[in-house]
Amino acid sequence: MANEDALQDEAVLQDQAHRQVVRIGDTVRRPVQPWTETVHALLRHLEAVGFPCAPRVLGFDEEGREVLSYIDGDSGALGWAGVVEGEGLNAFARLLRDYHDATADFCPPAGAAWAVGPHVPAAGDVICHGDFGPWNVVWQGRRPVGIIDWDFARPAARLHDVAYALQYVAPFRDDAECMRWLHFPEPPDRRHRLELFCSAYGLSSTEGIVDAVIDGQQENIDQVRRLADAGHQPQATWLAEGYLQDLERKLAWSRSHRHLFQ
């Protein structure tokens, strides 16, 4: 692999102080983290059960980076457009359900490490992606074909990922942000979108969902603060740059506008 790599250019996919992600040919190279082996075990399980929308583990390169298969399509900032229309929103929710179902019988390896700290699966838990948003889904048109960036995977109740995703795709954001940044041509019908997502995921009711989203926003603020205080990146940088104040502003908006979702 080393000789072949030397003949191919690296295309930078993410270039952050704490992490550079590059593409070489049909592979993605990422820095190894303490939880990398646990995530690799999860990805190998997904491959074994035939889940098609996750990268495949290809080992490590001569620089010590993990090597994953590259999934072709749009992601990152380009992913937001995928969930504006109902067709894409439905497909996004079904992808999350299919992923959760594929992890139901996964047994984490002994000594499993997760980015957010020790987690022991409880009855009914799956392995949540932990950062399931449109930016971490690979899109081909309005069809989601892959899930990327597995750093925050951890055992948790399905509702954790559902509530996290709904924060961004209902979305729990004001009209100006929806139209300026999230590709909506007009203010969204948030209640309808929440119901559409939950139905596509397979939930029989939306009872308690709004509370779960708001609780999840508070949990995320607490997690960012805890990781930042421990010196983890990018959370330490986020804290220094005032990102927590932005999260707290969004949480306050959700609490005062919950009537838009119920």
Rank of each mutant, 00 (worst) to 15 (best):
S256A: 10
Q235S: 02
G111A: 02
C198D: 03
R143M: 14
A17Q: 11
A153G: 07
G202C: 04
D174N: 13
F197H: 05
A110L: 12
E177G: 00
D15K: 07
G117T: 08
V138G: 03
T38L: 15
V120Q: 14
H40I: 00
L260K: 15
T38K: 08
T27Q: 14
A200P: 11
W150M: 10
V126W: 07
H257R: 02
F184G: 04
L42T: 08
G76E: 13
L194Q: 14
R29H: 04
D105S: 03
G25H: 01
A17T: 08
C107V: 10
A170R: 06
S199Q: 15
D229W: 03
R97H: 10
G86F: 05
D174A: 04
S75N: 15
N90R: 15
A81Y: 05
G117W: 08
E87L: 06
L43F: 12
V162F: 05
L58T: 00
A123R: 15
A252K: 11
G208F: 07
F51C: 07
E177H: 09
R226C: 06
D105V: 00
G73A: 06
P121K: 11
P108Y: 07
H160P: 06
D125L: 02
D215H: 08
D131T: 03
A252S: 06
G216P: 10
A2T: 14
D9K: 09
Q14E: 11
L96D: 09
Y243D: 10
R65G: 01
D5Y: 05
D131H: 01
R191S: 01
L194P: 08
A11M: 15
D175R: 05
I147L: 09
D189G: 01
A200Q: 10
E248K: 14
V138I: 13
C107A: 14
I214W: 08
E85T: 09
A163K: 10
F132C: 12
S205D: 04
D61E: 06
P118Y: 02
P144Q: 09
P134N: 11
Q14R: 14
Q262W: 11
P187G: 00
R44Q: 12
V126F: 03
A165P: 10
V32M: 10
E66D: 14
F197I: 14
A156K: 04
D74W: 01
D151R: 14
W150Y: 15
I24L: 07
E47K: 04
V169Y: 08
R143S: 13
A2E: 15
A200D: 12
L182S: 00
R44F: 00
R97G: 01
Q235E: 15
R255C: 12
I148L: 10
A122M: 08
A104H: 13
G88S: 06
I221Y: 00
D5A: 01
G242S: 09
F152N: 12
P134L: 09
A54D: 07
S254Y: 09
E195C: 06
R255I: 05
R173K: 14
L78C: 12
V12D: 04
Q223M: 13
F60L: 12
R173G: 02
A200H: 13
F132K: 15
A112N: 15
D101S: 03
E207M: 13
Q14N: 11
I24K: 11
Y70D: 00
A17M: 09
A176W: 05
P121R: 08
P118E: 12
L159S: 04
A81N: 11
S199H: 12
V210S: 14
